[in-house]
Amino acid sequence: MTRPLLELRALRVHFPVYSGLIRRRLAGTVRAVDGVSLDVAPGETVGLVGESGCGKSTLARAVVRLVPCTGGTVSFEGREISAMREPAFRALRPRLQLIFQDPYASLNPRMTVFDALAEPLRVHGLADGRDVRRRVSDLMELVGLAPRFMRKYPHEFSGGQRQRIAIARALALEPRLVIADEPVSALDVSVQAQILNLIARLREQMGLTLLFIAHDLSVVHYLSHRIAVMYLGRLVELGPASEVFYRPRHPYTRALISAIPVPDPVKEKTRQRVALHDEPASALNPPSGCAFRPRCPWAEPRCAEIVPPLESCGEGHQAACIRLEDI
């Protein structure tokens, strides 16, 4: 078996929280990511799903070292990047790119499309002189933008077009792994479909490995080979996309899937929904044992005592619940 392109081992990202205006003291720790292990094989697309605040964006940022890891390791191409110093890591950066959620915030408003795309090419010596212009127009065509718009500024484009620019910028560096952090959640439905198709096409065309992060399970299911479900900083389920989507095992995944509104009134009326109590606990003060316990319809006293590990429950399918047999 080939070695995974990206390996996360017990990755932890904790943020200290201070309180007090004058005498600042440590009030607690937000366990944004709390021991996540995940492999992404070359050419594979892994979807990472979870609700807001579950730590999925923090995980993405930790992999590209926008936030420091507080524990565990991140390895890329077999090298442990979480322990590297920044100058050493900079050489690897082009191969590991991130697409941001908000195309309105991820582009420098004072830079034309040309400048935004030419900059990474020049800095990393991927093109120079006249070549830059050709590469920029190639990139724009690749993502479906007319090269004649290269002298325009981000504010002259719609949200979908901006996201295309952001994608082109990430691809300019010819990355092997692209992490897409909710790339379509800020877009309208019809535009969302265009961008998803684009990502799918580019993945085939360039042989990209993709870690695709979203809160919308149907979007993730459409694009991914495997799906990982995250709740309060931990993975609760991991498995082949269709397995997770059609035969979810963890109570949280079940609730998540049953909560997606289906655009089909007939199905909607007959659909059985997993009703959840309350709302997610805070990552600052997670409950003991299984973090999902207070909302889980199947919870029992035992759930408060142990943090359930991911256990195999099928071919390449894992879930973190001690009552997998019973439910």
């Binding site: 969302q192 479909a193 655009p263």
Partner: peptide
């Protein structure tokens, strides 16, 4: 019709999504 078809959830996995061209 186009709007309904562009939803990922109504879609067969692996096929490109229907899109509405343009803006």
């Amino acid at each position: 019709e186009a709007l309904l078809q562009s939803l990922p959830s109504t879609h067969v996995k692996g096929e490109p999504l229907h899109t509405i061209p343009g803006l």
